[in-house]
Amino acid sequence: MSTTLTTQESSALAEDAAAGGRAGDSVFAGFSLGAGILILASLAAVALFLFLEALPTFQASAEEITGGAGFWSYIWPMVIGTVIAALIAIVIATPIGVLVALYISHYAPPRIAKPVGYVIDLLAAIPSVIYGAWGTTVLAAALVPFYAWLTANLGFIPLFSGPASQTGKTMLTVGIVLAIMILPIITAMSREIFIQTPKLHEEAALALGATRWEMIRMTVLPFARPGIISSVMLALGRALGETMAVALVLSGGPLTASLVQSGNQTIAAEIALNFPEAYGLRLSELIAAGLILFLITLVVNMIARAIIARYKEFSGAN
């Protein structure tokens, strides 16, 4: 492809014979179209190949599947675990992420806001395996006394029932690490939208005597609500699919209600931990688990994108 283009490129503009130019046009248009279709095809291929490789699992009898009770009872606890981890992360990260975005857009002086925005972007660029390593060596150990306190004082709630893990490698730790990882996503997207709030609305609110918080509540938040929701949905998609942090931090096991004991497992971590040694039906099982994860995140992301698309149509920004 590149050779055709470069030879045609080198011919001077004036010598660009009508026929050759037309050929160049259609070749270039064809390649662009082909690339676009290739992307659609590759997404379809992801679904197709996962399904083909997962097929043996769906056809196998229940006793052959790990756990001996069929695929759905094998995957179900991990679906729950995946959702729990992502929910903890969302619950922690959403308020903090939105407040930090407000800090950058409306509270910090411009001199500070810019570097802070850059630092938040860097936070998003740190590879997940490093967050995982940090979570398992630093954070988990630091949270052990906190978990002991939780079980002692709030142990009557099933979520915090003891005995607390002595290593801190629990679901709650995973949730906190995931929260730290998705915080930059929520912050970066919310900040972009907060900045786009019409200046006239803000100034009108202030001119009517609103305090800064009232101004934000009356002009910025209503304007940005769809954007915040979609940023949270995208962050949720990321948290659902995150592998390394969970695989390194969680000492997994069967489904338990307590968040401060070891136990529970997520789909992504189950795949990462078992795939390298898997063969035959086990391999197919794990690919089937990946297919389930793909479908879950696909639905979450499509909802997020639909909200964004709807929002774009009605936004006053363009």
């Binding site: 992307i39 659609l40 997404l43 992801v46 996962l50 995208l234 998609g237 990321r238 659902l240 699919g241 995150e242 592998t243 992504a268 795949i271 990462a272 990946g290 994860l293 793909f294 995140t297 696909l298 979450v300 992301n301 499509m302 997020a304 994108r305 964004i308």
Partner: peptide, 12 residues
């Protein structure tokens, strides 16, 4: 679908 692809979990 490019937007949706952005959200594919890396392990998938």
């Amino acid at each position: 679908f490019v937007d949706v692809m952005t959200g594919i979990p890396s392990i998938v």
